[in-house]
């Protein structure tokens, strides 16, 4: 099922409304001084999001794109960046990016900070076929040793050993 960009924007706005409403509810437990700024701000957030939604759904595209810069100064000179072919992110590509973060996070929790750095970089090089598996291991090992020397030896960071550490003790 493909969701149009228009609908996606509305979903984002609804999520924001829910977030701000949640803040308002939580603020009820605070004293008057503790909620003095967050409460009115959350209300302001709701107002902003509603206006944004209204413009998005009922306004003209020009109004939607109203840019502060265009208020401040005349039209922006032609884009200075050389025109690169704009590739829209594919849904698979996005899913892979989310997955990549999830894998690194899971590795960090399971194996600890330093082993995760090694496993993730080596795995990434191999999966993307950036280089041969041997070179992947060498690159990953060099990175991990450098990180270890910098953070653990020089900066005295106490590394997190991961949930699986007890199995190897």
């Amino acid at each position: 099922m493909k969701i149009s960009r228009h609908a996606q924007e509305n979903v984002a706005s609804v999520l924001l409304l829910a977030f701000f409403a949640g803040v308002i509810v939580l603020c009820q437990d605070f004293g008057p001084r503790a909620r003095m700024i967050p409460l009115p701000l959350a209300v302001f957030g709701i107002v902003l999001t509603l206006i944004q939604m209204a413009w998005h759904n009922f306004g003209s595209p020009e109004e939607l794109q109203m840019d502060m810069i265009s208020v401040q100064a005349p039209t922006i000179p032609a884009a200075e960046t050389p025109a690169a072919p704009v590739k829209k992110p594919s849904r698979q590509g996005e899913a892979a990016a989310y997955g990549m973060i999830a894998v690194l996070l899971a590795l960090t929790f399971a194996a600890g900070v330093m082993p995760a750095a090694f496993l993730f970089t080596a795995g990434y090089f191999m999966v993307t076929r950036y280089c041969s598996w041997r070179l992947s291991l060498v690159y990953a090992a060099v990175l991990t040793v450098s990180l270890y020397l910098l953070f653990v030896v020089a900066l005295q960071m106490q590394p997190y050993h991961g949930l699986l550490a007890p199995l190897f003790q």
Binding site: F19, F20, L41, G45, T49, Q52, Q65, M66, D67, M68
Partner: peptide
């Protein structure tokens, strides 16, 4: 904040409100 409200001033302001609330 005004400088970075690319696309829409409303969205720019919403982003700052979110940042302020996260800081709390």
């Amino acid at each position: 904040i005004a400088t970075f409200s690319e696309g829409s001033l409303m969205k720019g302001l919403t982003a700052s409100v979110l940042g302020v609330l996260v800081a709390f």
